[in-house]
Amino acid sequence: MTADVQAMTSWWGGFDFQGEQSKEWNIGPLKFIVQRLKNEWQIAHEYKDNFDANNITWSVKDTDQPSASLSDNSRFIFQDASGELSITPKLADRPIISRPLTPFNLTAGEEVTLYVSSSIWIELAINSAAKTVLKEIAIQRLSDTWFGPSTLEGELCYASTTHCRLSLDELPHFTHRAITPVLICNKADTTLSLERLNLPAPLLSLYAASNGQLWTPQITLIRQKDGDMAELKIENTLPDDVQPVIQLSEPRNRVDSSVLFRAFNTVFS
């Protein structure tokens, strides 16, 4: 990780603990405390009830608050609890169904690039001789949802709402959300009414720009001429304006091809 990115975005990366030190992170709705003791690491977290979605601040500080005071506390025992704590942002482990706050229509032959933001997870690991992953925590508890043509067929996903902004300039700077550019092409003869969009988060890698904003590669969704099939393409590129970038995490699931053909109703709804 380059020094300038680390300086701008210091809620992730490597953290050294001196003696039996405790640190507290506040990122969006999530508060978590990491405490190092002689032979153990303790990680506790809780979510703020009345969280303002527009509150995009984060903080990292030393704390005296015991980790056991938070609702969800875990202990990890080591013979020697030395080493550096590493915090890595990751994308969701299931696809995210983004619902535009206002559904929109894409007429026949049109194409548009939307910027869809999605909540991220953090991976807490100890870097000593080898990397030991301790825990993954979602920054925001997302609601479950079902995505598919019927209750027999489909998959479990996370639900999220999105503004589906059309311009990069309108995007607020979210430190705890990753932005995915989504290019939608409607090659069919009928209007595409977009009420829900399936964002394949486990197939995407995560990048950080120099201003701390998290990005995923662009995905392209093409509604085919017959209207029943959709082509999903995962590009290797980010928008030109967001350079320079570093890769933070690999995709959770690898696919052999970057172009996938799926039934239309498994991508859009």
């Binding site: 169904i97 619902r99 609601s143 479950d144 949802t145 995505f147 209750t151 639900a159 829900r196």
Partner: peptide
């Protein structure tokens, strides 16, 4: 139902 994260949004 909306506030409970275990409650599916869809169906």
């Amino acid at each position: 139902a909306n506030k409970n994260p275990l409650c599916l949004e869809e169906p």
